[in-house]
């Protein structure tokens, strides 16, 4: 996978976000085995400790499962992935509303504008 890290936020936070995005988009499928920490770290050119920290956090929230003998897996719990997807969508929309607000649009106006643009986009 492609890793894109910017340099003004903690690396492990960005790693968490990007692994989540991979799971939501289906690039990592439920039940897939994850490469080792070292390999992932080398792939992303980050410190293995940092990668470990990100993976532990994902384990804590249940997205990853660790089997002592055979390594790390993406959860097979599709419900959970759906929930994550919904949450991620919600965050995107909230962020969008926030940005529109900064441009001076009330949520109502934003919604109308949004519907209009989606319609004209369909016609194209």
């Amino acid at each position: 996978m492609k890793w894109e890290l910017n340099s003004d936020r903690p690396v492990y936070v960005q790693l968490i976000e990007q692994i989540q995005a991979e799971i939501i988009s289906g690039n990592y499928k439920p039940g897939d085995k994850l490469p080792s920490v070292r390999d992932l770290a080398a792939e992303a050119t980050v410190n293995p400790n940092t990668m470990q920290k990100a993976l532990s956090e994902l384990e804590r929230i249940g997205l990853l499962l660790t089997n002592r003998t055979s390594g790390r897996y993406i959860t097979s719990d599709e419900q959970m992935i759906k929930k994550l997807k919904a949450e991620s969508a919600k965050n995107q929309i909230l962020e969008f509303i926030d940005k529109m607000h900064q441009l001076g649009f009330e949520p109502e106006e934003t919604l109308n504008l949004f519907i209009e643009i989606v319609k004209s986009h369909k016609q194209d």
Binding site: S7, D8, R9, P10, V11, Y12
Partner: peptide, 15 residues
């Protein structure tokens, strides 16, 4: 720590 610089100062080590 690098994370401290990024969280507390909100900037990269390079900056």
């Amino acid at each position: 720590s690098v994370d401290d610089i990024r969280t507390k100062e909100g900037k990269s080590v390079d900056t």
